[in-house]
Write a protein that binds this DNA or RNA. Structure first.
Lengths: 146, 146
DNA sequence: TTTTCTGCAAAACCTTTGCATGTGG
DNA sequence: CCACATGCAAAGGTTTTGCAGAAAA
């Protein structure tokens, strides 16, 4: 059983009767290579370096496909643009720090948060399936320049 | 020094040379009375009960004004609609539980989260100004019906 | 009277979709 | 060949903006 997202995508595509195309492969490759929070437009920019003709619609369609097979997630951090990020086992539960000065998004992981969400869930009779925690403020660089 | 958001708004409006209007007063009154997470369209619905002629544009403009003077915040919970909520001292730090079955949004507050964010901030050399924590899953009602 | 505000409609924005053409299996 | 995929452009949804008339200071 492979952990390579491109392999997983390939398997999924075949099993559901979809087709492997140059565009899909390229978009997926670029997306997983950039381990970042990209807007669709940014994914397109990267992809265009290899293929000028790929359309934004295809980027959206491929990103949606990646979400359907559990390889990507989208999220709006509040500026009206959806950001996409890979979902892999090791970072499925990571959280984010968002610098409100420079816009940089950094990931972090806290075991305590996992514990905390269980406590809160119990206290409120909720069944938590996943969580999201975001800390807004200034990153170390921007903190200096204040 | 008043704690009444309507009073704060009034003071702000006057101090910056803006004008007090029936529409602004009504929208603000309705918004603060509904202590909920409302879409702009929902604010409009409530407002229309008192004044049929108020436009959606004015609702947006007033909600933006409330954000500028720190009385409201907006956030996209992932369905593409911005939700607006009052920002007051007592609930400035609350967090959210979102039921992915029925869409219900519930607030909660945890002192431990406040502590946790400080620890994380220190560890990463970040200056946290505010945070957001969301737990996604099933509320007690929807949990039963599974 | 002067500046701001409103309502309307149009524009802007990101994202999705319809359609004719292209391409993988 | 047939079904799916693509690119383009147009449509879709929410939010913003330009403008002329209305209202507050």
């Amino acid at each position: 059983m492979s952990n390579d997202p491109l392999q997983i995508l390939q398997n999924y595509v075949q099993s559901v009767g979809l087709k492997t195309t140059k565009q899909r492969e390229l978009i997926a490759k670029v997306f997983f290579a950039q381990n970042a929070h990209l807007k669709a437009e940014e994914v397109l920019e990267h992809v265009r370096k290899s293929d000028q003709k790929i359309s934004l619609a295809t980027v959206y369609r491929t990103l949606k496909l990646l979400q359907v097979c559990g390889l990507a997630k989208s999220h709006d951090f509040g500026d009206g643009h959806a950001r996409f990020e890979p979902t892999t086992d090791q970072d499925a539960h990571h959280d984010h720090f968002i610098c409100t000065a420079c816009g940089k998004i950094t990931e972090f992981f806290s075991e305590q948060i996992e514990q905390l969400q269980n406590d809160i869930a119990d206290a409120h009779d909720f069944q938590v399936n996943y969580h999201r925690m975001e800390l807004y403020g200034f990153c170390s660089d921007c903190k200096k320049n204040k």
